[in-house]
């Protein structure tokens, strides 16, 4: 009997779904590469140079250097999350792509796993498009900052899994706005992104660390870009890996429940 916590029987065929999405992405690459590229500029100018001029430094770090890793972390989150909510929902519900694919040797588990991997890949692509901009402005430190790329895959997979759970239970595409506004937006603001967590009341600090996934991505990203490594990295990493496994498994099983009747 399959439950929501069974290990889903995913096979290598999941790669075919990933490849399908990659082909569509490459066909429209001009539209796809532009946003993260521009986003990097916008953030740097508006917040980094604009607000940064007044703020100056945080804990001895120039403000623009402080927020650069946060901008990358937010991009990791947004890319995977929106790909696996709106993107996957459109493919599932409007295009009926999943129905078409599961009539072939692929199973629904393969399809969803392929979608999750694709979501993570979108995060990697975004970060890869943004890194050169930050490099030119000299606000992140190489080569350590390159570790953001594998982090983008892991963090992307976590947000893909969380997003796919919402997609699996949403009654329609409009209700996906709720997680976007009630979950994503607060994270953008309160995960140690634009001001240090230490400014929050202690109680909220605990809550943020316990339940807001972006906090851990921002923390690791900042260690890589400043750079300022510390053993706490392992704790953040463990948190991310655990949550990633839980939500990826859950999302595949929820999707099976939704689509196989």
């Amino acid at each position: 009997m399959k439950t929501l916590w069974s290990v889903p029987p995913v096979t290598r065929r999941a790669a075919k779904v990933w490849l399908r999405n990659l082909h569509v992405f490459v066909k429209t690459w001009k539209v796809n590469f532009f946003p993260p590229f521009v986003e990097a500029f916008l953030y740097l100018f508006a917040i980094g140079l604009g607000i940064g001029t007044y703020v100056g430094q945080i804990d001895g770090i120039p403000y623009v250097n402080f927020i650069a890793p946060a901008i990358l972390a937010i991009s990791i989150m947004n890319s995977a999350f929106f790909e696996c909510t709106y993107g996957s929902y459109v493919r599932m519900y409007y295009q009926k792509s999943f129905d078409a694919i599961i009539a072939t040797p692929l199973s629904i588990e393969d399809v969803i796993a392929g979608e999750l991997l694709w979501g993570a890949t979108r995060s990697v692509i975004s970060v890869a498009a943004m890194l050169p901009v930050f490099a030119v402005f000299g606000v992140i430190s190489f080569p350590m900052a390159l570790f953001i790329i594998p982090l983008a895959f892991l963090g992307g997979l976590m947000f893909a899994g969380i997003a796919m759970c919402f997609t699996a239970i949403t009654p329609g595409i409009d209700t996906l706005n709720y997680p976007a506004f009630l979950f994503i937006t607060p994270m953008v603001l309160f995960s140690g992104t634009f001001f240090p967590l230490a400014l929050l009341p202690l109680f909220f600090q605990y809550i943020v660390v316990a339940i807001l996934p972006l906090t851990h991505i921002v923390a690791i990203a900042r260690m890589f870009t400043l750079p300022a490594l510390s053993p706490v990295l392992l704790l953040h990493l463990t948190w991310i890996v655990g949550v990633t496994i839980i939500f990826c498994v859950l999302s595949i099983n929820l999707m099976r429940k939704r689509l196989i009747t």
Binding site: K16, R20, H23, V24, S97, A100, L106
Partner: peptide
């Protein structure tokens, strides 16, 4: 229900499906 892949051409639909 027609569930062709709108992101591909006719030939693209067939070759993408063939990969599965």
């Amino acid at each position: 229900e027609t569930n062709l892949d709108p992101d591909f051409s006719c030939a693209g639909n067939l070759t993408t499906y063939a990969r599965y």
